[in-house]
Simulated assay, not measured.
Amino acid sequence: MTTTLLSHLIELERLLLDPVVRSSKNQISNLLHSDFYEISANGLMFNKQHVLGRLPLEKIPQIYNQDFRGQVLTESLAQLTYHAAYRMNVQHALNFSIRMSIWTKTESGWQLLFHQGTPCPEFALSFDE
């Protein structure tokens, strides 16, 4: 994967964590493919319609992500993996997970097709990225 494509997909992935984007059904809809689905860290499955109904109302948790790796699967599919730590607020302990996203290139740009979070052991947070 080129550095430019990896940087672009990381930027798109992080946009989904931006409070302004998360509060906008239109912006979320533009980032998610019509066939998008997610398997959450607790094993639940969500489709695009569920995410569009949930994210704009959801309190934004504190999320840290790092150690991004990417690979091109086909000309129009790319995979990102990374580590994430999140908590609902400073009073809660951090939850650690490995995240994987598959992005697809469409006529309107790259869109998120699939996302999964899997709990993992605690790791050291790096604030250099």
Rank of each mutant, 00 (worst) to 15 (best):
R99K: 14
L31V: 02
E129D: 13
H33T: 07
N95M: 11
N89L: 06
S7W: 00
V20M: 12
L12E: 02
S7H: 10
L73A: 04
Q91R: 13
H83S: 10
L77I: 04
M88I: 05
I28D: 00
K59S: 12
V90R: 11
K59F: 04
N26G: 05
M1Y: 10
F114H: 15
Q62H: 13
R54Q: 09
R99Q: 12
L73R: 08
Y86M: 05
A93E: 15
G117R: 01
A78G: 07
P119M: 07
L16A: 02
Q79F: 03
E11W: 00
N26F: 13
N47P: 05
E107D: 15
K105R: 12
R54H: 09
V72S: 09
G43A: 10
Q116A: 04
C120F: 07
R14A: 01
C120T: 15
M1Q: 08
G70P: 07
R22I: 00
V90P: 06
Y64S: 12
L32D: 06
N30Y: 00
F46P: 00
S101N: 13
I39D: 06
S76D: 15
H92K: 14
P19Y: 04
E122I: 10
K48I: 03
R99C: 02
R69W: 03
L6M: 13
I102W: 02
D67Y: 00
L5H: 11
S24Y: 00
D35N: 15
Y86G: 04
I102S: 02
M45T: 15
H33E: 09
I63D: 00
S29I: 09
F46H: 14
L94S: 07
S40L: 06
I63L: 02
S34K: 11
L73N: 08
S101M: 09
L73E: 05
V90T: 11
R69Q: 14
T118C: 04
T2W: 05
P61T: 05
K25G: 14
Q116F: 01
L125M: 14
G117A: 04
L5D: 04
T104C: 07
M45P: 03
G70L: 03
T106Y: 03
E13D: 14
R99F: 01
S40C: 06
S23R: 15
P121V: 10
V90A: 13
T4S: 05
L94K: 11
Y37L: 07
E107N: 15
W103I: 09
Y37K: 03
E75Y: 12
S24V: 00
Q49K: 10
G53N: 15
N30R: 13
L125Y: 04
